[in-house]
Amino acid sequence: MKITICQLSDNEIEFAEDWELLKTHISQNNSDLLLLPEMPFCKWVASTKNVNEAAKLDSVQKHEQWISAVEELGVQYVVYSRPVMESDHYFNTAFVYVKGIGHQKIHTKAFFPEEPHFWEESWYSRETNPSFEIVDLGNLKIGVLLCTEMWFTEYARKYGKQGIDLLLCPRATEESSINQWIRCGQTLAVISGAYCLSSNKAGIGDNHFAWGGTSFIAGPMTGDLLGTTTDDEKFVTREIDLSKSREAKTDYPLYVKE
């Protein structure tokens, strides 16, 4: 199976340029699964603590406008998150697009930071009963942790116990914290016994904020890095062996009883 990670600019003009390059990369590499960053299709709205209802609506509309572009990539599976408005609630929700079938909700983000440039607790709502269930795609089982959720490692273990092949982690993280996010992803690959993929926002955001890019793939059992993106190589595709993630479920620490 071929999997692709990417880093995409938070600047909407540069994002459109990145997207054209991504289309070429996908076509040349015949990817089976693509992971996009957290809320990729508009600039980061939670950079200010002042919640703006017009900005919420604009972010929803921009993501809806890009849905057809996701489908046109021709990839079997595309995992991403997007804002969803329900009544007076504003959610950050993960979806998987399955070619020929459509877009399926995975789960809504449940844990939020509240600090400069990441005022997510102020902006977003939580579902009453957050769900961390796997998505069974027939020949592939996936689980998603959205950015901050990666640090709640009990869910990675839960996913592993449910037999996931891929742990997919869209994120929006800054340049200064890149190393700790990579280490976290490597640990999650061991805990879940699955390939851990994470795609991140990149470039310069509001108030000259430096996004981190550096998306990565970590292997099951060992957590070894199998690929990372850079500003010069924004897209990385690797061929993986799903049998390795399935073997990992019988190895340490997955076999340890609760």
Rank of each mutant, 00 (worst) to 15 (best):
E64V: 00
Q186W: 07
G100L: 08
S192R: 05
P220S: 04
T222W: 07
S176R: 13
T173D: 10
W44E: 02
R126I: 09
L35F: 07
W181L: 12
M221C: 06
N207F: 11
D206T: 08
R126P: 01
A172N: 12
M85K: 09
K201M: 03
Y155H: 14
T93N: 03
D206F: 12
S215L: 00
R126L: 08
L166I: 03
T93R: 06
G193E: 01
N179L: 13
G223E: 10
A218M: 10
V78S: 01
I26R: 01
K234A: 12
K2R: 15
G74T: 05
A210T: 00
Y195E: 00
Q186P: 12
S199M: 02
N200K: 05
P40F: 04
F15S: 09
E114L: 13
A172R: 13
A218I: 04
F95V: 05
H208D: 12
W119V: 03
E14K: 14
A218W: 05
V79D: 01
N129M: 09
Y124S: 03
H103D: 08
R183G: 07
T187W: 12
N92Y: 04
V236S: 03
H89L: 14
F112Q: 09
F112A: 11
D88H: 07
E258W: 11
F235E: 04
G102R: 10
C147A: 11
E175N: 13
T48A: 07
K2I: 08
K244I: 13
M221D: 06
L188K: 10
